[in-house]
Simulated scan of single mutants.
Amino acid sequence: MAKKTSLFEDLFKIASKLPWWLSALIAISSGVYLHSVATAPMPVYSDPQHLQSVVFSTMAHTGALFGQYLLPLIFTAGAIASVIGRRKRRNLLESAATTKGNPLLSITWHEFELLVGEALRRRGFSVRETGKNGPDGGIDLIARKDGETYVVQCKQWRSVQVGVPVVRELYGAMAAEGAVGGFVVTSGTFTKPARDFAAGRNVQLVDGTLLKQWIAEAKKTGPRPTVEVAPERVEPAIVEPEVVVTPSAAPAPIPVQAPAPTATQPVIREAEPEPAAPLCPHCRKIMVIRVARTGANAGGDFWGCVAYPKCRGIRAIFAPMTAK
C-alpha cells in the first residue's frame, strides 16, 4: 500500500525537484500575491442572496492569511534542498572518480541512480528523476537532448548479469514514452542474449567499465553544455558536388516565354509536396508509418524504420501545426 503524503510534503517534493532559482521565484511571487489578498479589505454584502460570495471571500481571505507565510517557506526550503541535492550529485561523481577500486559497489541503489543521472548531465543531457521508491521501479530517469527523449533504467547488480528481460522491458517502455532511444546502466555486465537483443535497436548497454569511463571523462572536463551525440547515432556525411566550369561555344538562346493561359486552357497547379519522412535514429534510413499493436500506445501510429525487423528504430509522430 502506498504511503499517503500531505499537501505540504507534495509541494516540498515538487519544489526540491525544480531548479533552485525557479523555486525561489515561486516563493517570492506567491508571498507577494497572497499578502496583497490577505491585506485587501473584505467586501460588504447587504443582500442575503450574496451569502455564497461572502463565504467564498472569507475562505479566500483566511487561506491567503496563512498561505502568505507557508507557501514562501515551503518553496524556499525546496530551493535549498535543490541546491543541496545538486551539490550532493556533484560530490558523488567527484568521489567516484577519485576513489580507488570499484566505487560503484560501495554506494546504495539510490546513490547509483543519482550518479548515473549526473554522468548523463555531464554528457549534455537534461535529466529528470522519476521518483521510484525502489531499486526495480522500471524507468528510473528521463533524459532529454536536442528535443528528443531517452529513457534510462539503472541496475546496480553486483553478482548477477543483466539479462535480456530487462532490455526487452526498456525497449517496450520506449514506445510507451515516445522515446527515440534508451540506456540500460549497470555496475556489472550484460549477458550475450541481452547484447544480441540490443543490437539493431537504439538501446545502449552501459556496463560498469563504460560507466567508470564516463565518470573519468566527466572528472576531466567538468560540467559542460550539450556536445555529445545520442547513443550510437551516426550522422550522415554531407558531400558538396564539385562544380566544373566549361567555356561556352555560343551564347545561350533566349528563352521563349510560354503563352498565358486562356479561358479555354485550364490552369494546372502543381500539387504541394508531402512532408518528407524522418530518418531512423539508429541506421539513418527512411522511416514509414506503422501502427502499434501492443503497449500503452496500442492502435496509435508511429514512425518505424523501413529496414524492420533488421533495424527496430522508432520515432513518435507529432501532429503538424496548421495555420488558421
Rank of each mutant, 00 (worst) to 15 (best):
A81R: 09
L210K: 13
T98R: 04
P309G: 11
T149Y: 06
T294V: 10
T264I: 13
T5H: 14
A296I: 07
F8S: 12
Y33M: 10
A119S: 15
F318L: 13
E242H: 06
A81I: 02
N297G: 00
T98M: 02
N202S: 14
P273V: 04
I314E: 03
T130F: 00
R290V: 11
A60M: 15
S126G: 11
A64F: 06
G172K: 11
P251K: 13
G31P: 01
F56K: 13
Q52S: 11
P241H: 04
T130G: 00
P41I: 09
M287P: 00
D140A: 02
I107A: 02
V127D: 01
A252K: 03
T76P: 00
D196L: 13
V229N: 14
A252V: 07
D207P: 01
G137H: 02
L210F: 12
E118R: 02
F183G: 02
A323H: 15
K88C: 06
M174N: 00
V44R: 10
V162T: 08
T39G: 08
E270C: 11
I286H: 06
Q68F: 08
R195K: 05
M59W: 10
H50D: 15
V288S: 12
R158G: 10
I139F: 05
E177A: 13
K145T: 09
P278M: 05
L92D: 03
A64T: 00
V54E: 01
T221F: 04
A2I: 13
E272T: 14
M174P: 00
H110I: 10
V243H: 12
H282P: 01
K3T: 10
G163K: 08
P278R: 07
P48N: 00
S57K: 00
I317W: 09
R128A: 14
I14D: 06
K145A: 12
V32N: 08
K155I: 06
N91V: 10
A260H: 12
A249N: 07
Q213A: 14
L71I: 15
S106L: 09
T221R: 05
R315Y: 08
T62N: 09
K220A: 11
A81L: 05
I238C: 02
A198N: 00
A38C: 03
K192E: 15
Y171K: 06
T191L: 03
